[in-house]
Design a protein around this nucleic acid. Structure first.
Lengths: 343, 343
DNA sequence: CTGAAAGCGCTTACAG
DNA sequence: CTGAAAGCGCTTACAG
């Protein structure tokens, strides 16, 4: 296939390979004329530097690692798309690594992976972002890493984050605006920052609207469909059931739709349902789900860029963090209280 | 991190680096004693060969490429999981490459990708497996590739396949067994082998059961939710509507559920619905969807192994193809004709 | 069964 | 602004 080497280009241009190297790496101190000539030859010959040779000589792999442990395929492919975009833009390759955050061999496997790929840096996603042992391990081994995560406290690591508190408040405000006052809430897995932030958003929105918090309207969940179904059964069987349920993610919201169907409660006429994440499932349900779009691809691209900037000394220093906004997506599963929509 | 080199291991073992190389690559003609001693030192020092050096010296990247253009995230992550497993087992890395099979720059982008990564071989999935120009391009550039695809004709390329005809027949047989005689069918994108095979399965099953084919019961679709909804509306408004609808994939089956809901036709009491693929959405719908599990992870692992065998001369020659079976998953959306289930 | 020499295609550190 | 030399850590081709 492409077997042109840097030396070939250098010979054609009548310069040393070092000068070609300078052009490839965008180093300064090459005369414009020389640079142009070399670039022209690179284009003509379709020269592409050999990554293995670059890595070996420069003691860096030009590889980024992407670590995740998430049950949502849509989240994973969104992540990959974003990080790949950043990698492509800066000449990096990507090593994907699905893992199990509860596996006791996690660190051992990771040590193996890093040892064999020599990846230059990593992008981490929840719940791995909350694994102290993992973060310490990366620090000790001097592997730069950027986290993608809801921001719930000051972090010592570079971070790309969403503000899940305000996103949850948006959902609540939408429901208030449609006349709902008794709004149920289904929590996610405990001790995950996103879980806590969405719950805070729920509570703050109640307070901002002068509605007294009622702990009976809060049901536990673990982000699974089944837990959403159970939680909804609990909420809908209350003496004074809610007129709307806000689930901390879309899988649980799908479970709410199922529970409502079994209890013969028509959505959205007697119950409004909201989710979180804008998982594709939200579009395929009947009725379709009102939810919050989680801008995972943009987050991932930012995270990739942030990481690469850290790795490249001659680029500006990394931003400490960046905030990307979520967006409310209104669909059929929500409506005014006791709405009289046509069937 | 791990900065032990082959030379370090050789020095510790009192042999030349060539001998260590032989052990690492499982080459024959090393005395058992020497091999054991070297393996022991490798373990103690936690030595892992530098991939960049291996690639550079051996003129191969030890990288596999995975190409896909599929709207289903679950399909993509399933693929990746399988190919990654094969890669891990044989010391290969994986380069993932989402692409657009309708993009006119497809080949140009691919040329770029292959040139920059030097990937040793590729795994292709539909619809890329049916892109003649792409396959020719890979042949011309001498890049081994394995296809994952339904098998509808003799293929010149190594292939891992499912038999979608018999899988579709399984679905039909299940419906016949429950008394259905008028069964609607929603087709997928034209000229894709899976589409044609599932349709063949539908027709063959009718014939095998002595039921006359009725073209009014077949509606076109394109694998999207929306197309399934439209097709179902068409079928359900027939003078003699079907008592069951078999959609060529789960997204379209989800659309059928929506259409049924809007037409106030209760599923499964007055209509049974079947899909194909066992996409996660099938579990989250209400009612849950009866479908055919597409064993994509197993297919992908087989494809990866097949490809690696081709690349390694000292392993046995590649099997020409292998067949992996699909499995029917029965869920709530199907039942006997006019079933009187409890609500 | 084992090893010495050359080389893969780049970058680094230095010199000018 | 440019280049000559050494070297990154392996494999190849050969010799014994």
């Amino acid at each position: 296939m492409n077997t042109v080497t840097m030396q070939d280009v250098a010979n054609l241009a009548g310069v040393s390979n070092k000068t070609v190297s300078r052009v490839i790496n965008n180093e300064p101190s090459v005369s414009p004329a020389t640079r142009d000539k070399i670039n022209k030859i690179i284009k003509e010959t379709n020269f592409q530097p050999n990554k293995s040779a670059q890595s070996l000589a420069a003691h860096r792999s030009l590889l980024l690692g992407l670590l995740y442990d998430n049950p949502s395929s849509a989240y994973i492919t969104g992540l990959q798309e974003g990080v790949l975009k950043a990698c492509d833009n800066f000449g990096y390759g990507l090593v994907i690594h699905p893992c199990d955050h509860k596996d006791s061999d996690l660190l051992q496997n990771l040590r193996q992976l890093i040892g064999s790929t020599r990846m230059d840096g990593l992008v981490l996603t929840p719940p791995l972002t909350e694994n102290k042992a993992l973060l310490d391990f990366l620090d000790e081994n001097n592997k730069p890493h950027v986290l993608i995560s809801p921001l719930d406290q000051v972090q010592s690591n570079p971070l790309v984050f969403t503000d899940d508190v305000s996103a949850a408040k948006q959902v609540m405000q939408f429901l208030f605006d449609h006349g709902h006052k008794r709004i149920g809430f289904i929590q996610g897995v405990r001790q995950r920052s996103g879980t806590e932030m969405r719950y805070q958003g729920y509570k703050q929105a109640l307070e901002d609207n002068g509605i007294v918090f009622d702990k009976d309207l809060v049901a536990p969940g673990d982000f699974t469909f089944e837990s959403g179904e159970l939680a909804a059964q609990q909420l809908l069987r209350l003496d004074k059931p809610p007129s709307a349920i806000f689930a901390s993610n879309d899988y649980m919201a799908a479970g709410v739709l199922k529970a409502a169907s079994q209890l013969r409660i028509p959505v959205p006429y007697e119950l409004s349902v909201c989710g979180f994440d804008d998982n594709p499932v939200a579009r395929f349900l009947t009725p379709t789900l009102t939810t919050v779009q989680h801008p995972v691809t943009m987050l991932a691209e930012s995270a990739g860029e942030l990481l690469i900037r850290q790795l490249k000394k001659h680029l500006e220093p990394p931003h400490k963090a960046s905030d990307i906004h979520s967006e409310l997506i209104v669909r059929e599963s929500t409506g005014p209280v006791n709405s009289q929509f046509e069937a």
